[in-house]
């Protein structure tokens, strides 16, 4: 099995007619994802390489039974697009767009929690999620992930996700689902949400978690692992040498007021029984050991 995304998922692309939306929707379709629709209010009735375009997500859901939306619209329109998706009836919204203001993210977080508790948002500023061999929604190159499990992967960083998938593939280890939660301050889905889903997924035997400096999401994950997880977790945290007060590329990756350091996160995770690798490749080696012992 996989979490949240499988071979039956039907995906609508908000921003399908834009350059990035079109490129990745077609790439996702070539991977095997059921790409059923796109939206653009001014191009309803047209199509992109056979994918029908609707005015709204609601219309797309009605006509095609879409249950997942993937958002590629520019940052100023993300807030409206996610609300449209939730009101339109999909239950998973994957926001790839980067550069979304933190206020919009916090507002969306509150809005979904209050008015659409059944809707899960992943991202913004994330690579999306992939259930290898089943479906790929987002910008991950599908061929770097080996299908079949037993590892579930969750990460705050795009390219480090690719690096981790690659390390696992080199070692012949498959992945059930890989979720990129994104590097922004208020992601719709947290490490903890992913860990809980992996713990419940019978095909996932172990979890790899890739964090970075800033915030306290890794510490909250450690608390969850200590209390609620039986499955082994291997982690890697980027930014051990990052100077305080500097934003390291991601809006959320900043050590401020002495908080959010990699050292503190590593210590907390280790304390929760997580095996933490010093580098992505060491984390890969640790996972090889864990999988061998399953």
């Amino acid at each position: 099995m996989s979490i949240w995304l499988n071979e039956r998922s039907r995906v609508v692309y908000q921003g399908l007619t834009g350059r990035a939306g079109r490129f990745h929707a077609l790439r996702n379709r070539a991977y095997g994802t059921r790409v059923v629709a796109g939206t653009n209010p001014s191009k309803a009735g047209t199509s992109v390489e056979g994918i029908p375009v609707f005015a709204t997500v609601g219309a797309a859901v009605e006509a095609t039974g879409a249950d997942v939306s993937c958002v590629f619209v520019p940052a100023p329109h993300v807030r409206g697009a996610v609300v449209e998706a939730a009101e339109g009836g999909v239950t998973l919204v994957v926001v790839i767009t980067e550069g979304v203001p933190a206020k919009d993210e916090a507002w969306l977080y509150g809005k979904l929690r209050r008015d659409h508790p059944e809707v899960r948002m992943i991202g913004p500023n994330c690579p999306g999620l992939i259930s290898p061999g089943k479906a790929n929604v987002g910008i991950t190159a599908g061929d770097i992930a080996l299908p079949g499990g037993p590892v579930g992967l969750v990460s705050r960083s795009g390219t480090l996700t690719y690096q981790a998938l690659y390390e696992l593939k080199q070692a012949g280890i498959g992945v059930t689902t890989c979720v990129g939660i994104g590097g922004d301050p208020v992601p719709g889905t947290s490490f903890t949400d992913c860990l809980a889903a992996f713990e419940d997924d019978p095909e996932t035997g172990a979890v790899m978690m890739i964090g970075e400096i800033g915030g306290s999401a890794e510490e909250e994950a450690a608390a969850f692992i200590a209390e609620h997880m039986a499955k082994p977790v291997v982690a890697y945290i980027a930014g051990i040498t990052a100077p305080p007060g500097k934003k390291m590329g991601h809006a959320g990756a900043i050590v401020s007021g002495g908080k959010g350091t990699a050292a503190a996160k590593i210590e907390t995770l280790s304390g929760a029984g997580v095996r933490v690798g010093e580098s992505p490749s060491e984390a890969g080696r640790l996972m090889v050991e864990v999988v061998a012992g399953l």
């Binding site: 910008i139 990460s155 705050r156 960083s157 795009g158 390219t159 480090l160 996700t161 690096q163 590097g183 890739i210 970075e212 400096i213 890697y236 980027a238 930014g239 051990i240 040498t241 990052a242 500097k246 390291m248 590329g249 991601h250 990756a253 990699a262 010093e278 580098s279 992505p280």
Partner: peptide, 29 residues
Amino acid sequence: ANGAGLAMSTVDVVAQAGGAAANFLDIGG
């Protein structure tokens, strides 16, 4: 490096190899 996470990680791995990075530079996705 490409990507913020990989760039941060690269700076770390340089330190683990006994050196020190002169910078963090993410050329982006």
